[in-house]
């Protein structure tokens, strides 16, 4: 194998493409978390590396992007939401955008489902579906980099990808391509448990209760990775009987919780820290896993 060479990426701005009279194949909607949150910026950069690697003609809005209005809408501030939607639709339509990919399920859901009624009609796909397509087409081989063979991975469904939009298989197919040991939490897919951040909870303290939701979910993820049936029984309560087909207990020292959402990323990472397990269990986004398996990080 020839030694790797690294190349600096100049992320193409939509304004520049438009000035040259060019149109992108797909617009990458970065989202606020992807642009500002230190942890999720790494996901944005991983996803851009993949876009560069496969040679898709893409562009980003850069400073012209603004919050989709999702947190405002879920919190009940419909006026602010519609103002944001109108602004963004004006920007997107100004560039005649047809197709949008985003790594944030909240942006995905809002642009895909709620912008049409306000006049914004685009083909919107989440990056899990986009990555699945690249893998299926053979454009990404998930080889040549870090090997995940045999590592235990559990996927945490985000509500706005799963129940909200019925996307359950795409992220799992991406993970399956890593040849890892994929284990499912009992509360998965349509029965998935929220990380606790949706509905604008990300920006406020939780109400009075016994436990934080992200801790509950992280406990489930950790117990599933480790096949700890007793811990799972304690979590699921009396009615569930037993935890079902869990693998034999195996203390995980390199388990991975995979996510596909910036808020889930924050909540699950905080949960792992809360359980003091950040030394042995990592939280990664799908794009990070693919970029690292493909060996394109530099």
């Amino acid at each position: 194998m020839t030694p790797m060479e690294k190349r600096q990426v100049n992320v193409p701005l939509m304004a520049d493409l438009a000035a040259r009279g060019e149109a992108p194949e797909v617009l990458f909607w970065v989202g606020c978390a992807g642009a500002f949150d230190d942890r999720y910026k790494r996901v944005t950069r991983a996803f851009v590396r993949i876009l560069e690697h496969v040679g898709v003609k893409y562009a980003v809005l850069g400073m012209e992007e603004s919050c989709t209005g999702d947190p405002a809408k879920r919190a009940g501030n419909e006026f602010l939401f519609q103002m944001q939607a109108a602004t963004n639709i004006a920007t997107l339509d100004g560039y005649n955008i047809k197709k949008i990919v985003t790594a944030c399920p909240h942006c995905f859901n809002t642009i895909k489902n709620e912008y049409p009624a306000l006049g914004g009609n685009y083909e919107v796909i989440h990056h899990s579906t986009f990555l699945q397509q690249l893998i299926n087409e053979g454009r990404v081989k998930v080889q040549g980099g870090e090997s995940y063979k045999g590592r235990r991975i559990t996927f945490h469904d985000s509500c706005y990808l799963g129940r909200a939009n019925d996307i359950y298989e795409a992220p799992r197919e991406v993970l399956a391509a890593l040849d890892a040991d994929l284990v499912e939490m009992k509360r998965s897919k349509a029965n998935g448990l929220c990380c606790g951040a949706g509905g604008a909870q990300m920006w406020k303290e939780p109400e009075r209760g016994k436990k934080d939701i992200n801790v509950e979910r992280t406990e489930e993820a950790l117990a599933t990775l480790e096949g700890d049936a007793a811990a799972l029984d304690a979590l699921y309560g009396v009615e569930s009987g037993n935890a079902g087909a869990t693998p034999a207990p195996k203390k995980s020292d390199n388990g991975i919780i995979a996510v596909g959402c910036p808020f889930c990323m924050t909540m699950m990472s905080d949960g792992v820290k809360n359980k003091e397990r950040e030394g042995s269990v990592q939280v990664f986004d799908l794009a990070e896993l693919v970029a690292s398996a493909e060996g394109i990080n530099a």
């Binding site: 690294k6 603004s66 990300m202 530099a298």
Partner: peptide, 25 residues
């Protein structure tokens, strides 16, 4: 700021600074 956090909109594109991709032989 056009974002739910108190970041300056002018920093929105900073994530793209010093970004490299490995060219696979």
């Amino acid at each position: 700021n056009g974002a739910p956090w108190a970041f300056s909109p002018s920093d929105r594109f900073n994530w793209a600074d010093d970004l490299y991709v490995a060219e696979k032989g």
